[in-house]
Simulated scan of single mutants.
Amino acid sequence: MQIEIDIVDAFTSAQFGGNSAAVIITEKWLSEPLMQSIAAQNNLSETAFLLKRSDSEYHIRWFSPLTEIDFCGHATLASAFVVFRKHPHLKVLDLFAEAVGEMHITHRGDGLIAMNFPSRTPQPLANIPCDLLEGLSITPREVLRNNQAYFAIYAEEEDILQLQQDPARLANLAPYDVVVTAQSRQYDFISRYFWPTNGGAEDPVTGSIHTGLAPYWGEKLGRSNLIAFQASKRGGLLHCQLDGERVIISGNAVPYLSGVIDVVEKDK
């Protein structure tokens, strides 16, 4: 069976930056073992699988090389980029995922793709896990958590840039990942994202976690529009807008590869 595949660099305007995601669009779902095998073979942060309902409506699922992911922002951006590229007349499309619900995606006139996500504001923690404190080389001043990750808050952006992680200790926090963040001089805030249990040591750019970072920093800074930078080796720029119980996250994307994969789906 031959299947079209696209690889896109998301949250960047320059190739080889941001976070790469593979995108596969099908008329019916592949089996879960096959989707997981393809994602493992691709060995990217995520491979997104879209089930087409119409040119502008799709169901979406995301797989890291290790497991299926409930919510992935950069692979959603990559998926929207591929759909808009295949259908140049489209300006809006709707995606649906079980854990996230409806996601309204808009191709803006300035080239950015805007994704409307539910807000997932983190809440303060009274008891901070020892594995979190021992797993980060610099002690945070505050720790919060939402349904995705622990949020380690720092006073200085240099802490984010210099910080080292112990993946073995952070893996003990499963099913939660860890994001470290601080206010920035050049941007409104910066972050890094560690997910040894669900995907890898450090994610290049993580759109989903900004549905928690943006509300946190929006309240702290008294702003509803924020510019964020994820300070990984590849780096990524995210435009965040608070809209009540929703967070609109926008970014650029650039194509890297379009091709065909040959796969054999075994009998179920």
Score class of each variant (00 low, 15 high):
Ile24Met: 02
Val260Pro: 00
Leu30Met: 10
Tyr193Gln: 05
Glu245Asp: 15
Gln165Val: 05
Gly236Ile: 07
Ile7Pro: 04
Glu4Lys: 13
His74Tyr: 01
Val23Ala: 06
Ile24Leu: 02
Val82Cys: 06
Leu93Asp: 04
Gln183Asp: 12
Ile3Ser: 00
Ile60Trp: 01
Leu173Glu: 06
Leu257Glu: 01
Gln148His: 14
Ala22His: 01
Gly236Leu: 09
Gly244Leu: 05
Ile5Trp: 00
Gly17Thr: 03
Ser20Tyr: 02
Val260Thr: 08
Gln186Ser: 15
Ala149Leu: 07
Pro175Ile: 04
Ile60His: 02
Asn19His: 04
Asn116Gly: 10
Thr206His: 03
Val92Gln: 13
Gly235Leu: 13
Leu144Arg: 13
Glu102Thr: 13
Gly17Ala: 11
Tyr154Asn: 04
Pro175Met: 11
Thr197Ser: 15
Ser31Lys: 12
Arg141Pro: 03
Asp70Leu: 00
Asn116Trp: 11
Ala171Arg: 13
Thr139Phe: 14
Pro140Cys: 09
Asp9Glu: 10
Leu51Met: 07
Phe81Asp: 00
Glu142Tyr: 09
His104Asn: 12
Leu30Ile: 03
Leu136Phe: 05
Leu51Phe: 06
Leu213Tyr: 12
Glu142Lys: 15
Met35Thr: 01
Pro175Arg: 08
Ser258Asn: 13
Glu158Arg: 15
Tyr150Arg: 12
Ser31Ala: 10
Phe81Asn: 02
Asn252Glu: 14
Glu157Ile: 05
Leu161Tyr: 11
Ser184Tyr: 03
Leu95Lys: 02
Lys91Asp: 09
Asp188Phe: 06
Gln2Ser: 02
Phe194Leu: 04
Pro175Gly: 08
Leu237Phe: 09
Ala155Phe: 03
Ala171Asp: 13
Lys28Arg: 15
Pro167Asp: 10
Ser13Gln: 11
Ile69Thr: 02
Gly73Arg: 01
Asp110Lys: 10
Lys266Thr: 01
Ala14Ser: 14
Val100His: 03
Ile227Cys: 05
Leu144Phe: 12
Ser13Val: 06
Ala228Tyr: 13
Leu161Ala: 10
Arg223Thr: 01
Ala182Tyr: 03
Pro204Trp: 05
Glu157Asn: 09
Phe189Pro: 12
Met35Tyr: 04
Leu30Asp: 02
Ala155Gln: 13
Asn42Lys: 03
Ile7Gln: 15
His239Ala: 06
Met1Asn: 04
Leu238Ala: 03
Leu132Ala: 09
Ala231Gly: 10
Glu57Pro: 05
Ala201Gly: 04
Phe117Leu: 12
